[in-house]
């Protein structure tokens, strides 16, 4: 049986923290602990010529992430996946996600 993972389209991750908060609620985590945590790059100017900037957020699952086993068993999406305000987290079998990973740049696939 295939493993499951989380595919993240970080081009559109807005850094809204909903995944972190939703996960904290799902796993009932105290202050200081996270099942998924945002990493941030930037902001910095990519070059002086065309005024384009790097400002990127990527949520990274921690070892506490259990891929929402109970929720998924009851037919729901993982809590971070459902609540992600930009709908950039997708849950599923790694083979399927890997195909999608190949379709678009600025994505990352996590297998927690």
């Amino acid at each position: 049986m295939s493993r499951n993972g989380l595919l993240i389209d970080y081009e559109f991750c807005t850094g809204c923290h909903s995944c972190e908060a939703a996960c904290k609620k799902e796993l009932n985590l105290p202050a200081g602990k996270f099942g998924i945590k945002l990493a941030k790059n930037g902001p910095f100017k990519l070059n002086e010529v065309d005024d384009k900037w790097e400002l990127t957020y990527v949520p990274v699952p921690t070892q506490l992430c259990n891929l929402c086993g109970d929720r998924v068993a009851s037919g729901k999406k993982p809590n971070c996946v459902q609540h992600c305000q930009a709908s950039v987290i997708e849950y599923g079998p790694v083979e399927e996600l890997a195909v999608k990973l190949n379709n678009k740049a600025r994505q990352v696939l996590f297998i927690p």
């Binding site: 939703a22 999406k77 809590n79 459902q82 609540h83």
Partner: peptide, 22 residues
């Protein structure tokens, strides 16, 4: 006990910000 977004809503499509989650 907890709040979730309504996945059947065509308004917010099941999504919520951290304020309503809390």
């Amino acid at each position: 006990v907890k709040v979730e977004g309504d996945p059947e809503s065509q308004y917010n499509f099941g999504r919520l910000c951290m304020r309503c989650l809390n």
